[in-house]
Design a protein around this nucleic acid. Sequence first.
DNA 1: ATTATTCATCGTAATATTGCGATATAGTTA
DNA 2: TAACTATATCGCAATATTACGATGAATAAT
Lengths: 108, 108
Amino acid sequence: MGITKTDTYTDQTLAVASIFKALGHPARIAILEFLAKQTSCICGEIVAELPLSQASISRHLVELKAAGLIKGTISGTSVCYCINETHFPLINTFIQQLQTPTNQSCCS
Amino acid sequence: MGITKTDTYTDQTLAVASIFKALGHPARIAILEFLAKQTSCICGEIVAELPLSQASISRHLVELKAAGLIKGTISGTSVCYCINETHFPLINTFIQQLQTPTNQSCCS
DNA sequence: ATTATTCATCGTAATATTGCGATATAGTTA
DNA sequence: TAACTATATCGCAATATTACGATGAATAAT
């Protein structure tokens, strides 16, 4: 999406942005919501559940995996995906940073 | 970014995704971090702080405002922006949903 | 061995994002 | 009024994203 100056931002900033970027698509949100609903790991039923082709789902899964938001384990011909909570603290910390008491709403 | 099937997702899913999408760029993360650092509302100093042109910063601010992540109040020739915490509960709730105890990590 | 199933990847087309310079708009000041 | 300052917007070029069908690779079943 056009040129993005990644050189001049903090590693932390880039990391947070990339996680949010991976979360910035309804298909990927829906995939995560679906994975969370299941008691056990679900594989390719995601394709049946969502209104996208198998190829598209696969690409979204790759992106979620690259962002560290899901894990995948191969079991036979099917692949089992589930949520990876590793980066959740990063997200929570970021949101909390924006909520510091110093930031008293000056714009009413 | 190509066709995105917005019709078939929940309003909730679309809302969450659009917030994350707005957070999915380092410039916008940096803007929010900068606003959080200040004790008072900061206006166009963002332009001086970040390695982007005034036009680009303005576009990012519009996006953050459209997503409901910042508020802006005009004071003279300058505009005062600050963080809008309205949607933070939505984000927190979403992350918590993904952390339900039913989702015991099955992929080791 | 052949076939079916599951998932990943490639290639392509359509669309969105990003960034910048230039310009417009609006308030402030001289 | 005219110049100055601060933001917003337009138009363009470059690049990224999304989606799909088709194809490939690997395991499972017959």
